[in-house]
């Protein structure tokens, strides 16, 4: 029997890194980001203890470990790990996106879905929107560049300034719901990618992915919504 190698000449570039390895990079970086998000969500709830407690918490994040550790040590470590995670996650996502595009240059005239969920279909563009949101969020709450509060504002002032504006609040809500869907499919997908799923566990994994995403996003949403409706100032 003759073995043709035409397929091997067709795609030398995309095939350099094993496609499953790309998925593992995506899963591991995604899990790191989820762990951070859980801590971040719980931390945000300090807002309900009032402006003083919230600002103190923000200061504590920067002074944690002093004097044994220099100022901002923990925060810097977290920032570096997260930046690396986001970059690795994006590299894998775009590279698989490109690979999929090359794998089907000619589309179908008629194509109907059998099983795919909305969440699984919006991973790529949803991810891009989430990235845009992350950039905006940092400019809003961390640096204050795009924030509507005065220059020398405290963290709590920035919260109130943003979420009393309905447009900003709406953007946060949309981005968070998208993030929730991303995680809904992402947690299930990561379990598969890391080889931890099976037929018996499938239901449990899916239920856990849904409940974790809903809880996390609900936890994030309560702060902006409470400020928007005036329950928290």
């Amino acid at each position: 029997m003759t073995v043709t190698t035409s397929g091997q000449r067709r795609t030398p570039k995309v095939a350099k890194t094993n496609s499953v390895v790309k998925k593992v990079v995506m899963a591991v970086s995604g899990i790191i980001m989820i762990l951070y998000l859980i801590a971040h969500m719980i931390g945000n709830l300090h807002a309900f203890q009032g402006a003083q407690a919230y600002n103190d918490y923000a200061t504590w994040l920067r002074t944690f470990g002093e004097p044994a550790l220099p100022k901002r040590t923990i925060l810097t470590v977290i920032e570096v790990v997260l930046t690396v995670s986001v970059l690795a996650h994006m590299w894998a996502a775009f590279s698989l996106w490109y690979q999929a595009k090359r794998a089907r240059p000619v589309g179908y005239v008629t194509k109907k879905a059998m099983a795919q969920s909305y969440a699984s279909r919006t991973m790529r563009w949803g991810g891009v929107i989430i990235l845009a949101f992350i950039v905006y969020h940092l400019l809003d709450m961390t640096t204050g560049t795009v924030n509507l509060a005065a220059d020398k504002s405290e963290p709590f002032d920035r919260l109130v300034a943003s979420f009393t504006n309905p447009w900003v609040t709406a953007f946060y809500v949309i981005a968070l719901v998208l993030l929730g869907m991303h995680l809904r499919h992402g947690i299930w997908s990561a379990t598969q990618t890391l080889g931890q799923s099976n037929r018996r566990r499938e239901r449990t994994v899916n239920a856990a992915a849904t409940s974790l995403s809903v809880l996390l996003i609900a936890g994030f949403l309560v702060v902006p919504l409470a400020i928007a409706i005036g329950a928290l100032r």
Partner: peptide, 30 residues
């Protein structure tokens, strides 16, 4: 090398498979 795309666990494959091969096999491969 053949140029197939990478799996993102969407599940269209298993739902379309005439033999009902399950998504579990993909987890086993990984």
């Amino acid at each position: 090398l053949e140029g197939f795309g990478g799996c993102t666990n969407i599940g269209e494959c298993s739902a379309s498979c005439p033999k009902g091969i399950s998504m579990e096999t993909i987890s086993r491969l990984n």
